[in-house]
Design a protein around this nucleic acid. Sequence first.
DNA 1: TCATTTTCGTTGCATTTGCAATGAAGTCAA
DNA 2: TTGACTTCATTGCAAATGCAACGAAAATGA
Lengths: 153, 153
Amino acid sequence: MESKWDYTMDDALPFDLMHFMPYRMAAAAQFLSDQLAQIYRVRCDLSNAEWRVMAHLAYSGNVSVRDVEARGGMEKSKVSRAAARLEDQGFIEKRVNETDRRLVQLTLTEKGRSLMAELLPLAAAFQADVERRLGPTFVGLEAALDRLLGEKA
Amino acid sequence: MESKWDYTMDDALPFDLMHFMPYRMAAAAQFLSDQLAQIYRVRCDLSNAEWRVMAHLAYSGNVSVRDVEARGGMEKSKVSRAAARLEDQGFIEKRVNETDRRLVQLTLTEKGRSLMAELLPLAAAFQADVERRLGPTFVGLEAALDRLLGEKA
DNA sequence: TCATTTTCGTTGCATTTGCAATGAAGTCAA
DNA sequence: TTGACTTCATTGCAAATGCAACGAAAATGA
């Protein structure tokens, strides 16, 4: 009880925000995300959520809303709405999976494939640029992310 | 150099999303943020934005809205609103800086200091746990984040 | 078989967010 | 000093978000 109320800002804190991992990781993610958005926003005005759905489709061919939710860590309502917007813009097509009629299969339209044919090289170039900028530390980052994200799966 | 990033639209997997750095970094940041929130949400119901403002205050003593915006990479309106909510809850106090009356100085109240006295050890323990989980890869992660975030400053 | 439970996607609703506009305060230069 | 410009924080507003509720479809199992 005493220590709780005797806390003052003069105490040495067992905490250093600038080296706090959740903080740094969020900052780094935001940094990269902003840079990437700046790149593809020159060519189209996809939101971050829409880009991620498109990337999943380019990666996996055709997937259900559930797939994007599970593998991408996005809320299903977020995926659903991003997909609706992408369909309105004519980039993807939604159709019921005849094997399991609960599932909605998302597929790129010709227009969507055409867009990604432009965007993916930009994304690849960005990835290469990140590797270049990180230099020798890139390998260490990959190892750490493998380990961290491996815990989820 | 030939790499996994070469592709054509006819390939089954034209794009290796699972190794795309912005994607992985965002996933890792989300992962850590969720785990951290789970820890401090047992003790209070701070939003992520509110937690970040509190952390800045505990770290820096007293700061202006602008300071949190600049150093934390948060939108100033987000900071402003988080600060308003924290003031309503009695965790912080807002007062005009008499030297420059444009600035709003944020300071922890006694209640706020008390809360952080409980939360910071939990944060420190979480940091230690992350280090432990990452093992030898932790050093490499730190180096990469230094390099990446160093570009901003 | 048929009732129960689970899975999947959408939607309603309240909250949060980003962006632009605003106003107050400070700075600078003529 | 004045007037134009800049900086800081807040707020209005539209869009995005998270969560819970819902309905349709499938799986379960008795």
